[in-house]
Computed example of a mutant assay.
Amino acid sequence: MAWLSISIETDCRHAEALADALLEAGALSACIEDADAGTDRETPQFGEPGSVTTPGWERSRVIALLESETDTSALIAACAPIAGLDQTPSFTQETVAEQNWVQLTQSQFDPIRVSERLWIVPSWHQAPDPDAIILVLDPGMAFGTGSHPTTRLCLEWLEQSVTPGISILDYGCGSGILAIAAAKLGASNVLGVDIDLQAVSAATSNAERNAVSARFADSAMDLKGQFDIVVANILSNPLKALAPAICAHVRPGGKLALSGILAEQTEELIASYAPYLPLSVADTRDGWVCLAGIKSKA
């Protein structure tokens, strides 16, 4: 079986309405992309909550998937006025052949070597080094597959910092990758919390798959206790707002690591945490920063 993929260029004022109209008219799927993606005019749209004030791209591209027998010209002519367009926009189309979509998706995710002894391996791959510490993790609903620089920074910091028997709190655990890594590196009391219940569920499943003893819970619960290590890989705005709460869970003499921080946000984050715990730059990668520090015993 084959399908038709159509691509229509429009602007941010009409793109969403056009995508909705195509779906209402029977399109199997519809998405909006930056028509200038891959050029020097590409415009980023993703950042921290509240940072995008005018969502959408001035030159947008609506891409829709249709049944193969669809009269594309008639469909677009019917949807254009519904979307508020005065004229029927031009479009291109191509045939999408039947494929093994699962196999195609899996082929895009290869094992990731974090360090000499730490690998992240999707479940459909063999471990490249069976003697290494293997984190079995598939792409899914929760953030944290190991490919993002912030996750790599935290994993590398954990590898250097975790010692057998310590306790660790992963604040904003996502997929659970950091908590699972800590458990495999020897931590014995591992807790991950997240505001997203899907993340909690995904992290629990990932811990079971990796045969590690790590607990995961809703961060809205009454979280108590202090830990030898606290790690938080989220975004700078929530990191700033949560500074007192996060630092309260670091035991005196314990360590804290933060990531999800852009290089230009470094000084602001350090200042936000200064009343509770001194931080400095532990490492950087691709414009992202990992901050770390030790809580005073006084």
Score class of each variant (00 low, 15 high):
Ser175Met: 03
Ser51Trp: 13
Ala202Phe: 11
Ile120Tyr: 05
Ala2Arg: 04
Leu75Ala: 10
Met1Gly: 15
Asn206Ala: 14
Gly146Met: 02
Ile166Met: 14
Ala181Trp: 00
Pro164Gln: 13
Cys154His: 00
Val96Arg: 11
Leu223Tyr: 14
Val96Met: 07
Ala245Thr: 14
Leu185Lys: 05
Asn100Trp: 03
Val250Phe: 00
Ala74Lys: 14
Val162Pro: 12
Cys290Met: 10
Thr284Leu: 08
Ala199Met: 12
Ser236Thr: 15
Ser68His: 06
Ala127Trp: 11
Leu269Ser: 05
Ala127Gln: 08
Trp288Phe: 04
Gly172Ala: 07
Thr54His: 13
Ser7Ile: 04
Pro278Glu: 06
Glu69Val: 07
Glu98Met: 07
Ala179Pro: 07
Ala25Val: 10
Phe143Gly: 01
Gly186Thr: 00
Leu197Gln: 15
Ala248Thr: 05
Gln106Tyr: 02
Glu156Phe: 00
Ser201Gly: 07
Ile166Tyr: 01
Ser219Met: 15
Pro111Gly: 08
Ile8Asn: 04
Asp86Ser: 14
Thr145Asp: 01
Ala27Arg: 02
Ser60Pro: 04
Val62Thr: 03
Glu208His: 13
Ile168Asn: 03
Thr150Ile: 06
Pro164His: 09
Ile112Lys: 05
Pro128Trp: 06
Gln160Gly: 07
Gly293Met: 05
Leu242Val: 10
Leu197Asp: 15
Cys154Trp: 00
Ile294Met: 05
Ala245Phe: 12
Gly144Thr: 00
Lys255Arg: 15
Tyr273Thr: 02
Val231Arg: 11
Ala97Met: 12
Leu279Arg: 03
Ser259Gln: 08
Met221Ala: 15
Cys12Thr: 02
Thr204Gly: 10
Ile294Lys: 08
Arg59Tyr: 05
Pro238Met: 14
Thr54Tyr: 05
Pro244Phe: 09
Val231Cys: 14
Phe216Asn: 13
Ser219Phe: 13
Ala132Phe: 05
Thr266Pro: 06
Ser167His: 04
Leu28Thr: 05
Arg61Lys: 13
Ala214Asn: 11
Cys173Glu: 02
Asn210Ser: 09
Pro244Gln: 12
Glu48Pro: 11
Glu98Ala: 12
Asp138Ala: 09
Leu235Tyr: 15
Ala257Pro: 02
His249Ile: 09
Ser68Arg: 14
Ala243Phe: 06
Val52Met: 15
Ile180Gly: 04
Leu185Ala: 03
Cys290Lys: 01
Glu264Lys: 04
Glu264Pro: 01
Leu262Gly: 09
Ile82Tyr: 02
Gln126Leu: 12
Pro55His: 13
Pro55Ala: 08
Pro81Asp: 09
Asp11Lys: 06
Val250Ile: 12
Gln226Thr: 15
Asp86Ala: 13
Ile6Val: 12
Asp86Val: 02
Ala203Gly: 07
Leu137Ser: 00
Leu197Ile: 13
Asn210Leu: 08
Thr53Gly: 08
Leu66Asp: 03
Leu169Lys: 03
Val114Thr: 08
Val193Leu: 12
Trp119Ser: 02
Gln226Cys: 15
Ala15Pro: 00
Gly293Arg: 04
Pro149Val: 02
